[in-house]
Amino acid sequence: MPHETILAELREIMLDVFDIDELDLTDATTAEDVEEWDSLSHVRLVVAVERKFGFKFKNSEIESLKTVGDLVRLIESKTA
């Protein structure tokens, strides 16, 4: 799945998980940039991504993520 497609899917998921209407999402976006993105909604985000793409993350993979770009690349590698 192309990088841009995953990013667009991710944006849809985040709108739902964070319950917001607007989100400017790029590879450089981090949790700091989105007010509703806290440790708790992060858990729901992980679950929603797993459900959408059909795989499970390891805790170590989640802990290593710094930016949205990292997450997209992780999804790329897991769905390849």
Binding site: L40, V43, R44, V47, K58, N59
Partner: peptide, 14 residues
């Protein structure tokens, strides 16, 4: 168990 370790969730969030 992963969710327990990471966030002390008592069971799978789904």
């Amino acid at each position: 168990p992963g969710h327990w370790h990471a966030s002390k969730l008592p069971f799978a969030p789904e």
